[in-house]
């Protein structure tokens, strides 16, 4: 016997408003317009610039359930559409996230879509064009018409060199593209404050550090210091770590394993450490002063290890 069931509950809507997202450009307007018109969206941007946060924010703002799929190279079309499972002597059909989203009119978000094999991505074609329907051949050729409110959103990082590297042109041209970059220093500062409550000199210097690292054109650096890593560093500072320790753990460590490059990054971080700047104590806020005191107490574990 064949039964249908829904395996997963959609992500519940936020009770207290959408997750915080500060636009860097017109991406919110484009997203909303595309959603109203049922156009699939392609988000391009470097790691940690806020692609996923934007999708969460918009899903909540538009009041649609969100189905997120992290794509990987072993993902098959069945993982998106659904499959039969054996239960006892019976077989049970279980919807995949794409099918669920189409049924309930949710937003289906395929994160890092270039990581998926092309044959899996082709499954979204019929949903992504004017037909807005899904053909489930395995379910006896059932066709599901996407419910109102359904939207397909994919994201990828154009900087990555994966073996597949790119989506098929036939997939790409079904999409509306939004290109995201890192926010300007002012906006990034605002994001840092909203996300972490870190203020004053340490926050300023973290932003500056991020800007400086993004100016680097170094072959060993595959990524730059993203907004996400800066937020992580700020969170560590608010937990009482010194500026250098926090930024080393959250920024330098994740960026590179190369010991030489790490040492260079740590030297950069020290240059930005407000605690290393006794002259500035008088002019800085209390946060800078605190950090200065902490740094003198904390021995640098990186140095000891090296």
């Amino acid at each position: 016997m064949i039964t249908q069931s829904t395996a997963r509950e959609p992500v519940p809507l936020e009770a207290d408003g959408p997750p915080f997202y500060l636009p860097v450009g017109n991406e919110v307007e484009v997203f909303e317009a595309a959603w109203r018109r049922g156009l699939p969206l392609m988000l391009k941007g470097p790691t940690g610039c806020g692609k996923t946060r934007l999708v969460e924010h918009m899903a909540s703002r538009l009041g649609r359930p969100l189905f997120t799929v992290s794509c990987h190279e072993d993902m098959t079309a069945s993982d998106l559409l659904g499959r039969f499972l054996l239960s006892g002597g019976d077989t049970t059909w279980v919807d995949g996230p794409l099918t669920q989203a189409a049924r309930v009119g949710g937003i289906c978000y395929l994160d890092e879509v270039v990581e998926a094999r092309p044959d899996a991505v082709v499954a979204i074609h019929s949903l992504a064009d004017h037909r807005r329907e899904l053909n489930l051949e395995r379910l006896g050729g059932t066709t599901i018409q996407a419910a109102p409110g359904f939207q397909l959103v994919v994201s990828y990082n154009p900087g990555y060199q994966s073996v597949l590297k790119d989506m098929k042109p036939s997939t790409r041209q079904r999409m509306v593209a939004v290109e995201l970059g890192f926010p300007t220093a002012d906006r990034e500062r605002e994001i840092l404050e909203r996300e972490t409550d870190l203020r004053g000199r340490p926050a300023d210097e973290l932003i500056r550090l991020g800007q400086a690292v993004r100016r680097l054109d170094h072959p060993g650096l595959r990524e730059v210091a993203s907004t996400r890593t800066l937020v992580a560093a700020a969170l560590l500072v608010t937990e009482g770590l010194s500026f250098t320790d926090a930024a080393t753990a959250a920024v330098a460590g994740p960026l590179s394993d190369d010991p030489e490059l790490r040492n260079g990054l740590i030297a950069m971080i020290r240059a930005f450490d407000p605690g290393n700047d006794p002259a500035a104590e008088g002019t800085s806020g209390h946060a800078g002063h605190q950090a200065a005191q902490k740094t003198t107490r904390t021995t640098n574990w990186i140095q000891e290890r090296a």
Partner: peptide, 18 residues
């Protein structure tokens, strides 16, 4: 002194080139 070499990255970042 290795610290001279370490400063290279800082200098490159600020100069905007190697």
């Amino acid at each position: 002194n290795p610290s001279l070499a370490e400063l290279e990255l800082l200098a490159s970042a600020i100069a905007g080139r190697g």
